[in-house]
Design a protein around this nucleic acid. Structure first.
Lengths: 228, 228
DNA sequence: GACTTAAGTAGCAAATAGACACTAATTGCG
DNA sequence: CGCAATTAGTGTCTATTTGCTACTTAAGTC
């Protein structure tokens, strides 16, 4: 009876007392940010890809390898989100989990047995994984201005409208076209290609690629707006 | 023999195969950022405060409690930095570590058996802890514009020059006095008190306290400067 | 050819950031 | 006391950045 009340104490030492490694793999899908999940047949209805962590190997390398294995190709960006070990449920029963957030380009097909689900429509995850997704999306937002996350979320060649859409997605608000382009130009981050893409109606858009030029004197400014 | 090749398999389940919880406790000490360390008698010459993690308790709560126990009082700010588990050495022998960065006000005396060491003068830490410090300081920098880290690093009442000094410390560059104050004023983050502090020479400085007023329409802006 | 749609640009006005120069209040010293 | 030195705090000018409106360009649709 006591074991029923404290399930963790009843577990034998081994896999189930280890640490899980969870992957929140994100991409831009139309107007929504999508996360890769594995649908399950029973409760929980679906799960983030996860594995048990081999404590003898380097954790960042293990995460990269796991992401590559599950996606069939390396993600274009990956970073650790953090460790979570509160009382919340994890599919593995692990008491401690380390989660990573990865980014793949738009229109990357979901691997066999997995599917893209909009973060806003996410339901049926184990509670710890649910929290991981929220934290991971926050990490994307926080780091998008120090790492080229939005650029990596697109194909190698992309239009500026596509880039702006990704920024709007991550920031959660609309941006002004002219201002966006002007700021981008001033940052010397992209270079135009010779190609143009005609997307149905309207004028064809020029394709750009991410090609940051080294600028000196890039200094972190004081920002008070987001405090309090 | 097989056990010798895979050390983790040879260890009994218990402390040595567990996960450590490490604390990078920071404060501003004059012109330097200082970290709290415990001097050791032998190699490694000193160590960050750490404990083994009890996997059955909530990890964030455990970190807060550990910090409070070691400091004698709760830190004014604490956040998780991340999990590290590469090949690098940790005092405990733990293969996996979760580190937290905490902030205490300037001039907080080091607890019994510990001392403040400038991050620039840090030597003799186990390699994993050395890496933790670097990551933790980076985390402070990255989060100082979304959390009131600099404000918390001061006493409840502080002068604007002190605040500016902390910002300069964290940003690693000099700031312009008038611009700094103007930006601060526009953010409605501090309120003046009736007290003034006379610090040796010069005109006494008015004391302020951190009292953020709720502002609406605080929207995250697009920032390209730090990319590439 | 006229209408629609989307890309891309020009130019103006408001807000912001950086800098200089000043005033204010205190200590130290002759 | 009177004056230099030192630190706090402010006024104002200018250059840059940002937000916006309105425009031009180039395609598809009817």
């Amino acid at each position: 009876m006591r074991e029923r009340l404290r399930p963790s104490a009843a577990r034998a030492p081994g896999a189930s007392v280890g640490t899980s490694l969870d992957l929140v793999c994100c991409t831009a899908a139309g107007r929504h940010l999508a996360v890769l999940v594995e649908p399950g047949e029973r409760v929980p209805a679906c799960a983030l890809p996860w594995t048990m962590l081999d404590p003898t190997v380097a954790i960042d390398a293990a995460a990269s390898r796991f992401a590559r294995d599950r996606l069939g190709r390396a993600p274009v960006w990956i970073a650790q989100v953090g460790a979570s070990g509160d009382g919340r449920r994890h599919p593995s029963g692990a008491l401690l989990s380390v989660s990573y957030v990865a980014v793949v380009p738009t229109a990357t097909p979901a691997p066999e047995g997995m599917e893209w689900v909009a973060v806003t429509a996410l339901a049926g995850l184990a509670s710890r994984q649910q929290a991981m997704v929220a934290t991971a999306v926050g990490a994307l937002r926080d780091r998008m201005d120090i790492a080229p996350i939005a650029f990596r979320m697109l194909s190698a060649e992309f239009t500026l409208s596509e880039l702006q859409q990704v920024y709007e997605l991550l920031l959660g608000r609309r941006l002004h076209k002219a201002s966006f382009r002007r700021a981008l130009q001033g940052a010397y981050l992209v270079e135009p290609t010779d190609s143009w893409r005609s997307e149905g109606r309207g004028r064809p858009a020029q394709l750009f690629r991410y090609a940051p030029r080294i600028r000196r004197g890039v200094r972190r400014s004081v920002r008070f707006e987001l405090l309090g």
